[in-house]
Structure formats: structure tokens, C-alpha cells
């Protein structure tokens, strides 16, 4: 069993913390894990991607082969589209509905349309993070929203969040819970 998770977004959105939480939760659950991240230049507001591979057997390639992604977590809607060649029909996609716009940004309707035919959950992470008491917890909201499709136990994820986030622990836990519930919103 190998579970491949691709996290995409824009440099500075807290993607590295999200993947650190996944890898540490995997260790707690005695799974093998490899994550590979974008550092350096792209962190200055460029397009960034992190590959997370979880398995109970050996993991070789740090990069997920195209088409193999089980869960795509997109911190930004346009970035979700940029990595569609990594997903298949079965891929579960969680998308933050809040765009980070730049020149020539396509209109939101066409982005949502493209995601429409897929197994996608669109989440307003900004609003939920605000509700949790800290807009910087959007990354944790998105982890919560994708947790149903991760091979990691929610309790373990919460424990790991407690251990890894330095500030605003309660807000982060609340953000996770609100993300979990995002499922039920039509």
C-alpha cells in the first residue's frame, strides 16, 4: 500500500508545515514516509509543490510518478489546475477557494468548471481559518478537509499538530476540526 499526496500552492502559504505534520504523523503511526519540498527562490511567492508518500513498505522515488496521486491538496485554485497531469479519475482533490491573483489570472468560474467533473471538495479555508480565530491556519483547515482520504488517524494528526505548531495551538486544532466538517457542507 502506498498513498501519494501532492500539496500545491504558492510560496509562503505554509505548505512545508503541512507536509511536516503529515510526515511526523506517519512516523507516529509507524508508516514509512518520504516528503520532498520546494525551498529557496520559489518560496518568494512562486508556484510550489510538495510530494508526500506514505507506505507500510519501502518507498523509493521521492517524486510521485504522474498519474499516481491519491490526494491532491491545493492551497490555491489555479495551482490545482497546474498539477492536473499528476492526478487520475480516482484522485480526491481538496481545493482552497481563495485565489492569489496575478496578471492574466483566469476567471474563477472556468477554474471551478474544470474541477467540476472530478472528485473535488472546494473549501473556503480563509473563512474557516478566520472562524478558528487565526487566518494563518488555512493550511490546517485543508489538512482537516483531506483527512478522510489520508491513511493517518485523525487523533494522531491532532497530536502531531499540537507538537509541531509553535503558536496558537487551540486555534490550529479548531481549524483542523472545521476542516473535517467542511465535508458536510454542500
Amino acid at each position: 500500500m502506498i498513498s501519494d499526496i501532492l500539496i500545491v500552492g504558492v510560496g509562503g502559504q505554509g505548505i512545508i508545515l503541512a507536509s511536516d505534520i503529515l510526515s511526523n504523523a506517519a512516523l507516529r503511526q509507524d508508516l514509512n514516509v518520504k516528503t520532498t519540498e520546494t525551498h529557496g527562490m520559489a518560496q518568494r511567492g512562486g508556484s510550489v509543490v510538495t510530494h508526500v508518500r506514505l507506505s507500510n513498505s519501502d518507498i523509493y522515488s521521492p517524486l510521485i510518478p504522474k498519474g499516481n496521486v491519491d490526494v491532491l491538496i491545493a492551497f490555491e485554485p489555479l495551482e490545482a489546475l497546474r498539477y492536473l497531469d499528476y492526478v487520475s479519475k480516482e484522485t480526491f482533490i481538496v481545493v482552497n477557494s481563495n485565489p492569489i491573483k496575478m496578471h492574466d489570472y483566469p476567471d474563477m468560474d472556468s477554474i471551478l468548471e474544470e474541477l467540476g467533473g472530478r472528485n473535488a471538495l472546494v473549501v473556503d479555508a480563509l473563512e474557516l481559518a478566520g472562524e478558528a480565530g487565526n487566518v494563518l491556519t488555512q493550511n490546517i483547515v485543508l489538512l482537516g478537509a483531506s483527512s478522510s482520504h489520508l491513511p493517518l488517524k485523525r487523533e494522531i494528526l491532532k497530536e502531531t499538530i499540537k507538537q509541531m505548531v509553535k503558536r496558537a495551538v487551540d486555534e490550529n486544532l479548531k481549524a483542523f476540526q472545521l476542516g473535517v466538517k467542511a465535508w458536510n457542507v454542500p
Binding site: R44, G46, V87
Partner: peptide, 19 residues
Amino acid sequence: QVINQGSGIKLPQRPPVMC
């Protein structure tokens, strides 16, 4: 080879920028 359809929309690049 697994050949997957990427996005149908033309996507603008998002290069890094000064903060």
C-alpha cells in the same frame, strides 16, 4: 507511460517575486 490530460485552460506562470 501514463498520459494524463493537464488543464484545458491556458495557465499563466507564477514565477517567484519580491515580497
